[in-house]
């Protein structure tokens, strides 16, 4: 099971960590937790279960190590950017995956997790709330703020 989902886990880990070394460390720890917790798995959303373990492991590491600095951005809920930047035109001029990954790393870990789960992996709000064990309103708020920070960072 773990092997067949290895690529899924690795990709999620990479999007959260932003580099291969940390992604590999994270996957190693996740696989260990998967082994230990395999008997708790119940038939159902296997990817959700694996993602829950991965994101929780990631957040645990962040909280204990705090080795990934974030880019400080203003947190003004009602801030509206002037004009309507053509995000795709902007991104087309850059190396999109690498640049987006950099911007993801600029998000606080709690925001990054929910944005990746929602927008990169297409989990629902409800699934994400269950995964990370926070109220769905908190998930919604974090995603909204995370997206807004990305938008601001993308603005020319």
């Amino acid at each position: 099971m773990a092997r067949s989902h290895g690529r899924f886990l690795y990709s999620l880990a990479y999007r959260l960590c932003g580099n291969h070394q940390d992604a590999q460390d994270l996957v190693q720890e996740v696989l260990l937790r998967v082994r230990r917790g395999l008997h708790t798995y119940r038939p159902g959303n296997l990817e959700g279960w694996l993602s829950r373990i991965t994101t929780n492991t990631f957040l645990d590491r962040v909280r204990t190590q705090k080795r990934r600095p974030t880019i400080p951005l203003p947190d003004e809920p009602d801030r509206v950017l002037a004009g309507s930047p053509d995000l795709h035109a902007e991104m087309a001029a850059r190396d999109l995956p690498d640049h987006l990954q950099e911007l993801l790393l600029g998000l606080p870990p709690d925001y990054r997790v929910v944005v990746v789960l929602k927008d990169v992996l297409s989990f629902s709000y409800e699934e994400i709330a269950e995964m990370i064990d926070v109220p769905i309103g908190t998930v919604r708020s974090r995603i909204h703020r995370g997206r807004r920070r990305l938008r601001e960072a993308l603005a020319p």
Partner: peptide
């Protein structure tokens, strides 16, 4: 604009692990 951000992120490709890593 949120949909646009989401769409951009949705275009991120999967990342393969190094050969033999798993």
């Amino acid at each position: 604009w949120e949909a646009e951000i989401g769409a951009l992120l949705g275009r991120l490709p999967s990342v393969d692990p190094p050969e033999g890593f798993i």
